[in-house]
Each structure stands twice: as structure tokens, then as C-alpha cells.
Design a protein around this nucleic acid. Structure first.
Length: 399
DNA sequence: ATGTCC
């Protein structure tokens, strides 16, 4: 790679939104000093992460940065609009709760002893030892939702105008947030360690931004693994939606989905670049995406405006405004229940670290990215399941 | 985000 500039250059980047924590800006500054960096962008929901901040977008030349994709490779959201009237859901929520309980599993390490079948498991998982060794785990985790900010929920989708082939009105929708689970995490760990080892010259503040060259076998192997995790994560959501809907005998009339932790090849002027979006929604012109809020605040279906200054990206959610530990310290179950009641949301399970009050105001975030996406529908969560506070997903006690 | 490797 002799063509790379030897002198440290600073790639330009713009910030969307106000009140972004200084640590996230410092991380983005750092990322833009890498010799491979071409352009960056910081989304309004940004906060600190490993290497690149969550809500960070980075275009680089001929390389991929594992920690700029993220630990949960291909973390993704999917919405199914159902053929059931919202009124029916409101009248009797119990079958829907049962469908969430039985259709997926939450918690770190959760899996199925009798794995689901999906054609993604027929793909080549043998192209490298790391991926090969993860195939069985991946198979057993198909259809699981994990932990952290992941969820499965029913809610009210409101269209104020005809869109996506749907008439204006109220719809019942299923929204899920999951990713590539243990397999993706292990791949992320393996290749970020490898990248760091291949770049001993990087100073400490840049070591988590170590990259893999895409003209070398390590980079090509990571890229292949990342893309497989992309299809695996999509399959994971497929299974979750299939399972949940089959418990209800419901059919989807429309599905929407997008990654928000991934890297893409993108034409940038007359050169091809690698665009990493780590907690950022693809927002190419005309492309639909889903930006969830929190368990009790709205999410939005959006259409990208293709703003190249933001590398065709947008926020991926409300963004945390405090750490998990701070949220647990500051808020009680009573505080949470009061908030849920006010918003008319039934919570099946979740930890206090996910309280809506720990997130920025999603309406504010949307207002700050009007030049990145247009809003075409609103989704209000009504029945929400997340991982139990102890990290598991199943109820241990009779409720 | 993930189990069980600093």
C-alpha cells in the first residue's frame, strides 16, 4: 500500500445534532486522523463506543476496521406490518404476549436445543477456521434476541399518508432488534485482535481503530465473515418473525429491515470507499429504514435523502444519554412503571438499564436530522419484551 | 453486544 500518504492527514467530518458528549467527538476526531480515512460523519444519537463512537460513520480507502463495524456485526431491525387490525390487539393482548414469550428467546448465551432451519446454514461456513468453529453455535442461536438494547415488541404503526403500498391509517406491527449473537461477537473479537496485532505502530488512542487491508487475505476473510453475519442476522430476524407470527396465525403484509452495524462499498465521487456505519442507519436516497426510539417512546419509518455529507446515513435510535450503571442507580421500578403507564405500554420484561429515561429524546433526534431522512410513519410500542435484568430472558418466577 | 481469556 505504498500509495498511502505518509503524512498524517485529517479527513473532514460533520456533526449532526447538539449536545453530543465530548468523548464521542474525541473518538471521531481520532478516527479521522487515520491514514486510511477519507470522510466521516457523526449522527445525532452518537455516544462513546470501542474505537469508533456509536453513531459514527467512517469512509476509508481499501481497508475495513472491525471496531468501526461494531461488536454486534450486522445488528439489525426488522418490522412486519400485520394483517390483523390494531383494535383486535388492544382488545386482548394475552395471545400477543404469549407469542413474544414463545417466539424468541432473550439473554446472553441463549439458544435452541433443536435449532431452526434456514438456508443461511447451507452456505459456506468453512472458508476460515474461526467461522467454521462458530457454525454450530450460530445454528443453535438462530431465532434468539440476545440482550442489551435488543427487543421484540408489538406496536401501533401510524401512517398519515399513503406510503409503501399501504393506505393511511393504523396498523399493528411487530418490531425486532437483534443481531449476529455469539457468532458475530466472536468474529468481531478475533479480527479486532488480529488487526491490532498487524498494526503495532498505532498509538494507544488509535489501537482500537486498527484496520485490515482489503487487498490482503485477513481483510478479505473478515469481509466474507462480516457479509455472512449480515445474512445470518437477517435470517435470525426471519426466524423470529416467522415464529412469533405463527403463534398468532398472523401474516405480514409488508416487511422493512436494515442493518445499522455494518460496512458497505460505496462510490464516493470517482473513487470507491468502504463506509462503516456503527449504530447508523443507511439513508441512501429513497431507501427505507426503521429508527426505533426506546421501549416507551416512538420509532419511525424513514426514507433516506441521500445526503452525501453524512455519507448517506442517519441515526439508528434515540441514543443513550447516561450509562447503564447510572440508569440503574438513578431510576427505580416505580419510576419505570409510572413512565410505562403514562405511555400506555405493557412491559413483559427488561432491566432498569433500559429505562426510556436513560435515552435522549427521539423527537429531538429526528428534528436534528431532517436533512438526512424524511419520516413516513410513526411506530408506538405497546407490548415490549427485552432481556431480564439478570441477563436471561425467561421468567423465573410466576408473574 | 457477548458468556465464562488478562
Amino acid at each position: 500500500m505504498g500509495k498511502r500518504p505518509r503524512i498524517q492527514q485529517f479527513a473532514p467530518y460533520e456533526i449532526w445534532g447538539r449536545e453530543i458528549e465530548a468523548d464521542a467527538i474525541r473518538q471521531m476526531d481520532n478516527a479521522c486522523t487515520l491514514p486510511i480515512s477519507i470522510q466521516g460523519a457523526l449522527m445525532p444519537d452518537a455516544h462513546m463506543g470501542y474505537g469508533l463512537p456509536i453513531g459514527g460513520v467512517l469512509a476509508v480507502k481499501d481497508a475495513v476496521i472491525p471496531y468501526a463495524v461494531g461488536v454486534d456485526i450486522a445488528c439489525r431491525v426488522k418490522m412486519s406490518v400485520l394483517d390483523l387490525a390494531f383494535d383486535r390487539f388492544e382488545a386482548l393482548q394475552e395471545p400477543f404476549r404469549a407469542a413474544l414469550e414463545q417466539g424468541t428467546r432473550f439473554g446472553m448465551g441463549e439458544s435452541f436445543k433443536r435449532p431452526h432451519n434456514h438456508r443461511v446454514m447451507d452456505e459456506d461456513w468453512t472458508f476460515c477456521p474461526t467461522v467454521k468453529g462458530l457454525k454450530d453455535k450460530a445454528w443453535q442461536q438462530l431465532g434468539t434476541s440476545g440482550s442489551g438494547n435488543h427487543f421484540a415488541e408489538f406496536g401501533l404503526l401510524t401512517l398519515s399518508a399513503a406510503e409503501m403500498g399501504l393506505e393511511p391509517g393504523n396498523y399493528l406491527a411487530l418490531l425486532t432488534h437483534s443481531g449476529s449473537r455469539g457468532a458475530g461477537a466472536a468474529i468481531a473479537k478475533h479480527y479486532s485482535t488480529l488487526a491490532r496485532r498487524l498494526h503495532p505502530e498505532l498509538p494507544k488512542h488509535l489501537s482500537d481503530l486498527a484496520w485490515l487491508d482489503l487487498d490482503r487475505s485477513e481483510g478479505l476473510e473478515y469481509w466474507k465473515a462480516m457479509e455472512l453475519m449480515g445474512r445470518y442476522s437477517s435470517a435470525n430476524h426471519d426466524i423470529i418473525h416467522q415464529s412469533v407470527l405463527s403463534h398468532l396465525g398472523a401474516v405480514s403484509v409488508l416487511t422493512l429491515e436494515n442493518h445499522h452495524n455494518f460496512a458497505w462499498k460505496m462510490q464516493c465521487g470517482d473513487e470507491e470507499v468502504i463506509v462503516h456505519r456503527k449504530g447508523a442507519t443507511p439513508a441512501d436516497r429513497g431507501v427505507l429504514g426503521v429508527i426505533p426510539g426506546s421501549m416507551a417512546t416512538p420509532g419511525f419509518v424513514v426514507r433516506g435523502l441521500g445526503n452525501t455529507r453524512a455519507l448517506n446515513s442517519a441515526a439508528h435510535g434515540a441514543g443513550r444519554k447516561m450509562s447503564r450503571n447510572a440508569a440503574i442507580k438513578q431510576f427505580s421500578r416505580k419510576d419505570l412503571n409510572r413512565f410505562l403507564e403514562k405511555k400506555g405500554v405493557t412491559l413483559v420484561s427488561a432491566g432498569l438499564d433500559e429505562v426510556p429515561m436513560a435515552y435522549k429524546d427521539i423527537l429531538d433526534i429526528m428534528a436534528q436530522q431532517k436533512d438526512l431522512v424524511e419520516t413516513i410513519a410513526r411506530f408506538d410500542p405497546k407490548l415490549v419484551k427485552m432481556a431480564e435484568p439478570d441477563g436471561k430472558g425467561r421468567r423465573k418466577q410466576k408473574r
